[in-house]
Design a binder for these strands. Sequence first.
DNA 1: GTGACTTATAAGTCTGACTTTTTGGTTCCG
DNA 2: CGGAACCAAAAAGTCAGACTTATAAGTCAC
Lengths: 233, 233
Amino acid sequence: MSTPGRGLHGHVLDTLGPAITAGEYPAGSVLRTDELAQRFDVSRSVMREAVRVLESMHLVESRRRVGVTVLPACEWNVYDPQVIRWRLAGADRPRQLRSLTVLRSAVEPVAAGLAARHATPEQCAELTECALGMVANSRGHRLQEYLVHDVAFHRVILTASGNEMFARLGDVVAEVLAGRTHHEVMFEDPDPAAVTLHVQVAEAVREGDADRAERLTREITVGALQELDILAP
Amino acid sequence: MSTPGRGLHGHVLDTLGPAITAGEYPAGSVLRTDELAQRFDVSRSVMREAVRVLESMHLVESRRRVGVTVLPACEWNVYDPQVIRWRLAGADRPRQLRSLTVLRSAVEPVAAGLAARHATPEQCAELTECALGMVANSRGHRLQEYLVHDVAFHRVILTASGNEMFARLGDVVAEVLAGRTHHEVMFEDPDPAAVTLHVQVAEAVREGDADRAERLTREITVGALQELDILAP
DNA sequence: GTGACTTATAAGTCTGACTTTTTGGTTCCG
DNA sequence: CGGAACCAAAAAGTCAGACTTATAAGTCAC
Protein backbone atom coordinates (compact mmCIF):
# COMPACT_ATOMS: atom_id res chain seq x y z
CA MET A 1 0.00 0.00 0.00
CA SER A 2 0.98 3.62 -0.45
CA THR A 3 4.56 3.90 -1.66
CA PRO A 4 6.44 0.63 -1.35
CA GLY A 5 10.06 0.16 -2.24
CA ARG A 6 11.10 3.69 -3.01
CA GLY A 7 14.69 2.70 -2.93
CA LEU A 8 16.80 0.46 -0.77
CA HIS A 9 16.27 2.50 2.37
CA GLY A 10 12.55 2.02 1.82
CA HIS A 11 12.94 -1.73 1.88
CA VAL A 12 14.89 -1.50 5.11
CA LEU A 13 12.14 0.65 6.63
CA ASP A 14 9.46 -1.79 5.52
CA THR A 15 11.19 -4.41 7.65
CA LEU A 16 12.55 -2.42 10.56
CA GLY A 17 9.52 -0.17 11.03
CA PRO A 18 7.00 -2.97 11.54
CA ALA A 19 9.48 -4.86 13.72
CA ILE A 20 9.97 -1.92 16.06
CA THR A 21 6.31 -0.91 16.26
CA ALA A 22 5.41 -4.53 16.91
CA GLY A 23 7.61 -4.42 19.98
CA GLU A 24 10.11 -6.90 18.59
CA TYR A 25 12.83 -4.65 19.94
CA PRO A 26 11.76 -3.59 23.44
CA ALA A 27 12.25 0.03 24.44
CA GLY A 28 15.89 0.60 25.31
CA SER A 29 17.22 -1.99 22.90
CA VAL A 30 20.37 -0.82 21.22
CA LEU A 31 21.10 -1.47 17.57
CA ARG A 32 24.28 -0.66 15.68
CA THR A 33 24.17 0.96 12.28
CA ASP A 34 26.99 -1.18 10.90
CA GLU A 35 25.46 -4.40 12.07
CA LEU A 36 22.08 -3.44 10.60
CA ALA A 37 23.73 -2.48 7.32
CA GLN A 38 25.28 -5.94 7.16
CA ARG A 39 22.07 -7.67 8.11
CA PHE A 40 20.08 -5.92 5.38
CA ASP A 41 23.00 -6.12 2.97
CA VAL A 42 23.04 -2.41 2.22
CA SER A 43 25.74 0.21 2.50
CA ARG A 44 26.11 2.30 5.64
CA SER A 45 24.86 5.40 3.82
CA VAL A 46 21.56 3.70 2.99
CA MET A 47 21.26 2.36 6.52
CA ARG A 48 21.92 5.80 7.95
CA GLU A 49 19.13 7.29 5.85
CA ALA A 50 16.74 4.68 7.16
CA VAL A 51 17.78 5.37 10.74
CA ARG A 52 17.27 9.09 10.20
CA VAL A 53 13.72 8.46 9.08
CA LEU A 54 12.99 6.24 12.09
CA GLU A 55 14.51 8.97 14.22
CA SER A 56 12.20 11.59 12.73
CA MET A 57 9.28 9.34 13.68
CA HIS A 58 10.68 9.21 17.23
CA LEU A 59 10.86 5.43 17.02
CA VAL A 60 14.57 5.45 17.76
CA GLU A 61 17.27 7.81 18.94
CA SER A 62 20.81 7.77 17.65
CA ARG A 63 23.64 8.73 19.98
CA ARG A 64 27.37 8.69 19.55
CA ARG A 65 29.30 5.93 21.15
CA VAL A 66 26.02 4.30 22.16
CA GLY A 67 24.19 3.29 19.03
CA VAL A 68 20.61 3.42 17.85
CA THR A 69 18.30 3.14 20.85
CA VAL A 70 14.67 2.07 20.50
CA LEU A 71 12.37 4.56 22.23
CA PRO A 72 9.36 3.64 24.38
CA ALA A 73 6.00 3.58 22.64
CA CYS A 74 4.83 6.73 24.41
CA GLU A 75 7.41 8.69 22.42
CA TRP A 76 6.37 7.48 18.98
CA ASN A 77 4.77 9.82 16.48
CA VAL A 78 1.54 7.85 16.50
CA TYR A 79 -0.06 10.24 14.00
CA ASP A 80 2.47 9.46 11.32
CA PRO A 81 0.50 7.61 8.62
CA GLN A 82 3.40 5.26 8.10
CA VAL A 83 3.54 4.39 11.78
CA ILE A 84 -0.21 3.90 11.83
CA ARG A 85 0.02 1.54 8.87
CA TRP A 86 2.84 -0.43 10.46
CA ARG A 87 0.94 -0.81 13.68
CA LEU A 88 -2.28 -1.76 11.94
CA ALA A 89 -0.36 -4.46 10.12
CA GLY A 90 1.15 -5.81 13.31
CA ALA A 91 0.23 -7.48 16.54
CA ASP A 92 -1.43 -4.59 18.36
CA ARG A 93 -3.78 -3.96 15.50
CA PRO A 94 -6.83 -4.22 17.80
CA ARG A 95 -5.39 -1.68 20.22
CA GLN A 96 -4.54 0.69 17.38
CA LEU A 97 -7.98 0.27 15.88
CA ARG A 98 -9.57 1.19 19.19
CA SER A 99 -7.40 4.28 19.63
CA LEU A 100 -8.25 5.45 16.16
CA THR A 101 -11.96 4.82 16.61
CA VAL A 102 -11.99 6.87 19.80
CA LEU A 103 -10.17 9.63 17.94
CA ARG A 104 -12.80 9.43 15.21
CA SER A 105 -15.57 9.69 17.78
CA ALA A 106 -14.07 12.95 19.00
CA VAL A 107 -13.21 14.53 15.68
CA GLU A 108 -15.90 13.54 13.19
CA PRO A 109 -18.91 15.09 14.93
CA VAL A 110 -17.13 18.43 15.24
CA ALA A 111 -15.96 18.12 11.64
CA ALA A 112 -19.53 17.48 10.52
CA GLY A 113 -20.71 20.56 12.36
CA LEU A 114 -18.07 22.66 10.64
CA ALA A 115 -18.88 21.04 7.31
CA ALA A 116 -22.49 22.15 7.70
CA ARG A 117 -21.22 25.72 7.90
CA HIS A 118 -18.50 25.63 5.28
CA ALA A 119 -19.32 22.95 2.71
CA THR A 120 -19.46 24.17 -0.88
CA PRO A 121 -22.41 23.20 -3.07
CA GLU A 122 -20.12 20.76 -4.86
CA GLN A 123 -19.19 19.10 -1.60
CA CYS A 124 -22.85 18.89 -0.59
CA ALA A 125 -23.64 17.22 -3.88
CA GLU A 126 -20.76 14.80 -3.48
CA LEU A 127 -21.88 14.00 0.03
CA THR A 128 -25.42 13.24 -1.09
CA GLU A 129 -24.05 11.07 -3.87
CA CYS A 130 -21.97 9.10 -1.38
CA ALA A 131 -24.94 8.63 0.93
CA LEU A 132 -27.05 7.39 -1.99
CA GLY A 133 -24.25 5.04 -2.98
CA MET A 134 -24.27 3.64 0.53
CA VAL A 135 -28.01 3.09 0.39
CA ALA A 136 -27.78 1.42 -2.99
CA ASN A 137 -25.15 -1.03 -1.74
CA SER A 138 -26.49 -1.62 1.75
CA ARG A 139 -28.14 -4.91 0.86
CA GLY A 140 -27.03 -8.09 -0.81
CA HIS A 141 -23.44 -8.50 0.40
CA ARG A 142 -22.12 -5.62 -1.64
CA LEU A 143 -19.69 -4.83 1.16
CA GLN A 144 -16.89 -3.69 -1.12
CA GLU A 145 -19.01 -1.16 -2.97
CA TYR A 146 -20.57 -0.01 0.29
CA LEU A 147 -17.13 0.57 1.79
CA VAL A 148 -16.02 2.75 -1.12
CA HIS A 149 -18.93 5.11 -0.62
CA ASP A 150 -18.63 5.03 3.16
CA VAL A 151 -14.97 6.04 2.98
CA ALA A 152 -15.71 8.74 0.43
CA PHE A 153 -18.51 10.07 2.63
CA HIS A 154 -16.32 10.53 5.67
CA ARG A 155 -13.51 11.95 3.57
CA VAL A 156 -15.80 14.64 2.21
CA ILE A 157 -17.02 15.52 5.69
CA LEU A 158 -13.48 15.87 6.99
CA THR A 159 -12.36 17.89 4.00
CA ALA A 160 -15.45 20.11 3.97
CA SER A 161 -14.83 21.01 7.61
CA GLY A 162 -12.25 23.43 6.28
CA ASN A 163 -9.77 22.33 8.93
CA GLU A 164 -6.53 20.95 7.53
CA MET A 165 -5.90 18.83 10.63
CA PHE A 166 -9.27 17.17 10.23
CA ALA A 167 -8.81 16.74 6.51
CA ARG A 168 -5.58 14.82 7.06
CA LEU A 169 -7.46 12.23 9.10
CA GLY A 170 -9.20 11.06 5.94
CA ASP A 171 -6.63 8.33 5.38
CA VAL A 172 -6.90 7.21 8.97
CA VAL A 173 -10.66 6.90 8.78
CA ALA A 174 -10.35 5.05 5.50
CA GLU A 175 -7.97 2.62 7.14
CA VAL A 176 -10.31 2.06 10.09
CA LEU A 177 -13.37 1.53 7.92
CA ALA A 178 -11.49 -0.81 5.63
CA GLY A 179 -10.15 -2.69 8.61
CA ARG A 180 -13.61 -3.12 10.02
CA THR A 181 -14.97 -4.48 6.77
CA HIS A 182 -12.13 -6.85 6.02
CA HIS A 183 -10.87 -8.24 9.29
CA GLU A 184 -13.27 -7.54 12.11
CA VAL A 185 -17.01 -7.68 12.36
CA MET A 186 -19.31 -6.98 9.42
CA PHE A 187 -19.80 -10.30 7.75
CA GLU A 188 -23.34 -9.37 6.95
CA ASP A 189 -24.95 -6.28 5.51
CA PRO A 190 -24.37 -2.98 7.31
CA ASP A 191 -26.77 -1.75 9.97
CA PRO A 192 -29.72 -0.03 8.22
CA ALA A 193 -29.89 2.54 11.01
CA ALA A 194 -26.32 3.59 10.30
CA VAL A 195 -27.10 3.97 6.62
CA THR A 196 -30.06 6.17 7.42
CA LEU A 197 -27.90 8.30 9.71
CA HIS A 198 -25.47 8.94 6.89
CA VAL A 199 -28.30 10.09 4.64
CA GLN A 200 -29.54 12.39 7.37
CA VAL A 201 -26.09 13.84 7.97
CA ALA A 202 -25.88 14.66 4.28
CA GLU A 203 -29.24 16.38 4.60
CA ALA A 204 -28.21 18.37 7.65
CA VAL A 205 -24.98 19.52 6.00
CA ARG A 206 -26.86 20.50 2.87
CA GLU A 207 -29.29 22.55 4.96
CA GLY A 208 -26.48 24.10 6.97
CA ASP A 209 -27.82 22.69 10.23
CA ALA A 210 -24.56 22.39 12.16
CA ASP A 211 -26.04 21.17 15.42
CA ARG A 212 -28.02 18.43 13.75
CA ALA A 213 -25.08 17.34 11.62
CA GLU A 214 -22.92 17.12 14.72
CA ARG A 215 -25.54 15.24 16.72
CA LEU A 216 -26.23 12.72 13.98
CA THR A 217 -22.53 12.11 13.35
CA ARG A 218 -22.07 11.54 17.05
CA GLU A 219 -24.65 8.78 16.76
CA ILE A 220 -22.68 7.22 13.95
CA THR A 221 -19.44 7.27 15.92
CA VAL A 222 -21.16 5.93 19.02
CA GLY A 223 -22.19 2.99 16.88
CA ALA A 224 -18.59 2.51 15.79
CA LEU A 225 -17.49 2.53 19.43
CA GLN A 226 -20.12 -0.01 20.37
CA GLU A 227 -18.99 -2.34 17.61
CA LEU A 228 -15.62 -2.48 19.33
CA ASP A 229 -17.19 -2.79 22.78
CA ILE A 230 -15.88 0.58 23.85
CA LEU A 231 -18.50 1.88 26.25
CA ALA A 232 -19.15 2.32 29.95
CA PRO A 233 -20.60 -0.74 31.69
CA MET B 1 13.29 24.02 22.06
CA SER B 2 13.11 20.24 21.71
CA THR B 3 16.27 18.86 20.09
CA PRO B 4 18.23 21.47 18.21
CA GLY B 5 21.45 20.80 16.35
CA ARG B 6 21.56 17.02 16.55
CA GLY B 7 24.19 16.94 13.88
CA LEU B 8 24.75 18.72 10.60
CA HIS B 9 21.63 17.34 8.98
CA GLY B 10 19.69 18.82 11.89
CA HIS B 11 20.99 22.26 11.13
CA VAL B 12 19.98 21.87 7.50
CA LEU B 13 16.50 20.82 8.60
CA ASP B 14 16.18 23.80 10.92
CA THR B 15 16.62 26.03 7.91
CA LEU B 16 14.93 24.07 5.13
CA GLY B 17 11.94 22.90 7.17
CA PRO B 18 10.74 26.35 8.20
CA ALA B 19 11.43 27.67 4.72
CA ILE B 20 9.28 25.03 3.06
CA THR B 21 6.43 25.16 5.58
CA ALA B 22 6.43 28.94 5.31
CA GLY B 23 5.72 28.56 1.61
CA GLU B 24 9.06 30.02 0.57
CA TYR B 25 9.27 27.25 -2.01
CA PRO B 26 5.82 26.95 -3.63
CA ALA B 27 4.40 23.51 -4.24
CA GLY B 28 6.02 22.01 -7.30
CA SER B 29 9.33 23.81 -6.83
CA VAL B 30 12.24 21.58 -7.69
CA LEU B 31 15.43 21.54 -5.68
CA ARG B 32 18.59 19.61 -6.42
CA THR B 33 20.43 17.72 -3.73
CA ASP B 34 23.87 18.75 -4.94
CA GLU B 35 22.96 22.40 -5.12
CA LEU B 36 21.46 22.30 -1.63
CA ALA B 37 24.55 20.53 -0.30
CA GLN B 38 26.68 23.34 -1.69
CA ARG B 39 24.39 26.02 -0.36
CA PHE B 40 24.47 24.62 3.17
CA ASP B 41 28.13 23.69 2.85
CA VAL B 42 27.60 20.07 3.80
CA SER B 43 28.42 16.83 2.05
CA ARG B 44 25.89 15.12 -0.18
CA SER B 45 25.46 12.31 2.37
CA VAL B 46 24.32 14.77 5.02
CA MET B 47 22.08 16.54 2.56
CA ARG B 48 20.54 13.26 1.50
CA GLU B 49 19.72 12.39 5.11
CA ALA B 50 17.98 15.74 5.52
CA VAL B 51 16.00 15.20 2.34
CA ARG B 52 14.96 11.75 3.53
CA VAL B 53 13.55 13.24 6.72
CA LEU B 54 11.65 15.92 4.81
CA GLU B 55 10.37 13.15 2.57
CA SER B 56 9.12 11.15 5.55
CA MET B 57 7.18 14.25 6.60
CA HIS B 58 5.70 14.40 3.11
CA LEU B 59 7.06 17.89 2.67
CA VAL B 60 8.99 16.89 -0.44
CA GLU B 61 9.24 14.02 -2.86
CA SER B 62 12.49 12.86 -4.39
CA ARG B 63 12.50 11.43 -7.88
CA ARG B 64 15.29 10.33 -10.18
CA ARG B 65 16.24 12.58 -13.01
CA VAL B 66 13.82 15.19 -11.64
CA GLY B 67 15.07 16.29 -8.26
CA VAL B 68 13.48 17.07 -4.94
CA THR B 69 9.97 18.37 -5.51
CA VAL B 70 8.13 20.41 -2.87
CA LEU B 71 4.70 18.92 -2.21
CA PRO B 72 1.48 20.93 -1.77
CA ALA B 73 0.49 21.76 1.81
CA CYS B 74 -2.43 19.32 1.72
CA GLU B 75 0.09 16.46 1.60
CA TRP B 76 2.13 17.51 4.62
CA ASN B 77 2.12 15.44 7.79
CA VAL B 78 0.57 18.27 9.78
CA TYR B 79 0.53 16.17 12.96
CA ASP B 80 4.30 15.85 13.01
CA PRO B 81 5.40 17.84 16.08
CA GLN B 82 8.35 19.16 14.15
CA VAL B 83 6.16 20.39 11.32
CA ILE B 84 3.79 21.97 13.83
CA ARG B 85 6.69 23.78 15.49
CA TRP B 86 8.02 25.01 12.17
CA ARG B 87 4.64 26.32 11.14
CA LEU B 88 4.01 27.94 14.49
CA ALA B 89 7.32 29.73 14.14
CA GLY B 90 6.51 30.92 10.64
CA ALA B 91 4.16 33.19 8.77
CA ASP B 92 0.96 31.17 8.97
CA ARG B 93 1.21 30.92 12.72
CA PRO B 94 -2.33 32.35 13.15
CA ARG B 95 -3.80 29.81 10.76
CA GLN B 96 -1.96 26.96 12.47
CA LEU B 97 -3.08 28.20 15.88
CA ARG B 98 -6.69 28.20 14.72
CA SER B 99 -6.46 24.69 13.29
CA LEU B 100 -4.97 23.40 16.51
CA THR B 101 -7.54 25.15 18.67
CA VAL B 102 -10.36 23.60 16.67
CA LEU B 103 -8.69 20.23 17.07
CA ARG B 104 -8.48 20.85 20.81
CA SER B 105 -12.16 21.72 20.92
CA ALA B 106 -12.95 18.36 19.41
CA VAL B 107 -10.55 16.21 21.37
CA GLU B 108 -10.33 17.62 24.88
CA PRO B 109 -13.98 17.24 25.91
CA VAL B 110 -13.98 13.60 24.87
CA ALA B 111 -10.63 13.11 26.59
CA ALA B 112 -12.02 14.63 29.78
CA GLY B 113 -14.97 12.27 29.65
CA LEU B 114 -12.65 9.30 29.31
CA ALA B 115 -10.42 10.66 32.05
CA ALA B 116 -13.39 10.71 34.40
CA ARG B 117 -13.74 6.98 33.80
CA HIS B 118 -10.09 5.94 33.77
CA ALA B 119 -8.07 8.41 35.84
CA THR B 120 -6.04 6.84 38.65
CA PRO B 121 -6.20 8.36 42.13
CA GLU B 122 -2.73 9.80 41.53
CA GLN B 123 -3.89 11.50 38.34
CA CYS B 124 -6.95 12.88 40.14
CA ALA B 125 -4.71 14.32 42.82
CA GLU B 126 -2.37 15.81 40.26
CA LEU B 127 -5.30 17.32 38.44
CA THR B 128 -6.64 18.95 41.58
CA GLU B 129 -3.20 20.26 42.35
CA CYS B 130 -2.96 21.82 38.90
CA ALA B 131 -6.36 23.43 39.26
CA LEU B 132 -5.40 24.85 42.62
CA GLY B 133 -2.17 26.15 41.13
CA MET B 134 -4.19 27.92 38.46
CA VAL B 135 -6.41 29.52 41.08
CA ALA B 136 -3.42 30.60 43.12
CA ASN B 137 -1.84 32.31 40.13
CA SER B 138 -4.95 33.69 38.48
CA ARG B 139 -4.45 37.20 39.87
CA GLY B 140 -1.64 39.67 39.91
CA HIS B 141 0.00 39.17 36.53
CA ARG B 142 1.46 35.78 37.40
CA LEU B 143 0.89 34.68 33.81
CA GLN B 144 3.97 32.49 33.64
CA GLU B 145 3.11 30.50 36.73
CA TYR B 146 -0.51 30.26 35.65
CA LEU B 147 0.55 28.88 32.26
CA VAL B 148 2.64 26.14 33.82
CA HIS B 149 -0.30 24.82 35.78
CA ASP B 150 -2.69 25.27 32.87
CA VAL B 151 -0.45 23.21 30.58
CA ALA B 152 0.03 20.56 33.26
CA PHE B 153 -3.73 20.37 33.80
CA HIS B 154 -4.51 19.69 30.16
CA ARG B 155 -1.62 17.26 29.88
CA VAL B 156 -2.99 15.21 32.77
CA ILE B 157 -6.46 15.15 31.23
CA LEU B 158 -5.12 13.94 27.90
CA THR B 159 -2.90 11.32 29.51
CA ALA B 160 -5.57 10.13 31.93
CA SER B 161 -7.93 9.53 29.03
CA GLY B 162 -6.00 6.33 28.48
CA ASN B 163 -5.88 6.94 24.74
CA GLU B 164 -2.38 7.14 23.33
CA MET B 165 -3.47 9.34 20.43
CA PHE B 166 -4.95 11.86 22.85
CA ALA B 167 -1.94 11.68 25.13
CA ARG B 168 0.37 12.62 22.27
CA LEU B 169 -1.53 15.88 21.80
CA GLY B 170 -0.15 17.13 25.11
CA ASP B 171 2.73 18.89 23.41
CA VAL B 172 0.40 20.47 20.89
CA VAL B 173 -1.87 21.83 23.59
CA ALA B 174 1.14 23.11 25.49
CA GLU B 175 2.28 24.91 22.37
CA VAL B 176 -1.13 26.49 21.83
CA LEU B 177 -1.50 27.62 25.41
CA ALA B 178 2.02 29.02 25.48
CA GLY B 179 1.40 30.77 22.19
CA ARG B 180 -1.74 32.35 23.53
CA THR B 181 0.00 33.66 26.62
CA HIS B 182 3.09 34.97 24.89
CA HIS B 183 2.06 36.30 21.52
CA GLU B 184 -1.66 36.69 21.25
CA VAL B 185 -4.28 37.95 23.63
CA MET B 186 -3.96 37.61 27.41
CA PHE B 187 -2.11 40.69 28.53
CA GLU B 188 -4.19 40.75 31.66
CA ASP B 189 -5.17 38.13 34.19
CA PRO B 190 -7.01 35.05 32.89
CA ASP B 191 -10.79 34.91 32.82
CA PRO B 192 -12.03 33.96 36.31
CA ALA B 193 -14.83 31.91 34.75
CA ALA B 194 -12.28 29.76 32.92
CA VAL B 195 -10.36 29.18 36.12
CA THR B 196 -13.53 28.06 37.88
CA LEU B 197 -14.30 25.69 35.01
CA HIS B 198 -10.93 24.01 35.42
CA VAL B 199 -11.57 23.48 39.11
CA GLN B 200 -14.96 22.01 38.32
CA VAL B 201 -13.52 19.69 35.67
CA ALA B 202 -11.06 18.39 38.25
CA GLU B 203 -14.02 17.79 40.56
CA ALA B 204 -16.02 15.98 37.93
CA VAL B 205 -13.09 13.74 37.00
CA ARG B 206 -12.45 12.98 40.65
CA GLU B 207 -16.09 12.00 41.07
CA GLY B 208 -16.10 9.95 37.90
CA ASP B 209 -18.82 12.07 36.33
CA ALA B 210 -17.91 11.65 32.67
CA ASP B 211 -20.79 13.64 31.22
CA ARG B 212 -20.15 16.61 33.45
CA ALA B 213 -16.40 16.52 32.80
CA GLU B 214 -17.07 16.48 29.07
CA ARG B 215 -19.62 19.27 29.23
CA LEU B 216 -17.44 21.53 31.35
CA THR B 217 -14.39 20.95 29.18
CA ARG B 218 -16.48 21.80 26.16
CA GLU B 219 -17.19 25.15 27.81
CA ILE B 220 -13.46 25.70 28.25
CA THR B 221 -12.70 24.95 24.61
CA VAL B 222 -15.60 27.10 23.43
CA GLY B 223 -13.93 29.92 25.32
CA ALA B 224 -10.66 29.19 23.54
CA LEU B 225 -12.46 29.28 20.19
CA GLN B 226 -14.11 32.57 21.03
CA GLU B 227 -10.78 34.12 21.93
CA LEU B 228 -9.70 33.47 18.35
CA ASP B 229 -13.02 34.65 16.94
CA ILE B 230 -13.89 31.19 15.70
CA LEU B 231 -17.65 31.03 15.98
CA ALA B 232 -20.77 31.22 13.85
CA PRO B 233 -22.18 34.71 13.30
C1' DG C 1 36.23 6.07 47.22
C1' DT C 2 36.90 10.15 44.33
C1' DG C 3 38.66 12.62 40.60
C1' DA C 4 41.46 13.11 36.56
C1' DC C 5 43.16 10.84 32.58
C1' DT C 6 43.11 7.51 28.81
C1' DT C 7 41.13 4.55 25.52
C1' DA C 8 38.07 2.17 22.79
C1' DT C 9 33.83 2.54 20.33
C1' DA C 10 30.20 3.75 17.37
C1' DA C 11 28.14 7.50 15.14
C1' DG C 12 29.17 11.36 12.15
C1' DT C 13 31.26 13.33 8.03
C1' DC C 14 33.45 13.72 3.56
C1' DT C 15 34.91 12.29 -1.02
C1' DG C 16 34.87 10.21 -5.38
C1' DA C 17 33.57 6.72 -8.38
C1' DC C 18 30.00 4.17 -10.22
C1' DT C 19 24.89 2.61 -11.29
C1' DT C 20 20.14 3.26 -12.44
C1' DT C 21 16.14 5.38 -13.78
C1' DT C 22 13.71 8.65 -16.30
C1' DT C 23 12.84 12.43 -19.27
C1' DG C 24 13.09 14.83 -23.41
C1' DG C 25 14.83 15.19 -27.71
C1' DT C 26 16.09 12.97 -32.17
C1' DT C 27 15.74 10.07 -35.76
C1' DC C 28 13.61 6.97 -38.68
C1' DC C 29 9.78 4.92 -40.79
C1' DG C 30 4.83 4.68 -42.10
C1' DC D 1 2.82 15.01 -40.80
C1' DG D 2 2.57 11.76 -36.93
C1' DG D 3 4.00 8.21 -34.21
C1' DA D 4 7.22 4.77 -32.48
C1' DA D 5 11.68 3.47 -31.37
C1' DC D 6 15.98 5.00 -29.85
C1' DC D 7 19.61 7.64 -27.55
C1' DA D 8 21.87 10.70 -24.51
C1' DA D 9 22.05 13.55 -20.52
C1' DA D 10 20.74 14.55 -15.92
C1' DA D 11 19.89 13.76 -11.34
C1' DA D 12 19.09 10.66 -7.70
C1' DG D 13 20.74 6.32 -5.82
C1' DT D 14 24.37 3.30 -4.20
C1' DC D 15 28.74 1.90 -2.51
C1' DA D 16 33.41 1.71 -0.35
C1' DG D 17 36.83 3.60 2.40
C1' DA D 18 39.16 7.01 5.06
C1' DC D 19 38.90 10.09 8.53
C1' DT D 20 36.78 12.94 12.69
C1' DT D 21 34.38 13.47 16.96
C1' DA D 22 31.92 12.75 21.00
C1' DT D 23 31.51 9.98 24.90
C1' DA D 24 30.90 5.93 27.89
C1' DA D 25 33.68 3.26 30.47
C1' DG D 26 37.67 1.67 32.31
C1' DT D 27 42.20 2.89 34.73
C1' DC D 28 45.15 4.79 37.73
C1' DA D 29 46.92 7.82 41.12
C1' DC D 30 45.74 10.13 45.26
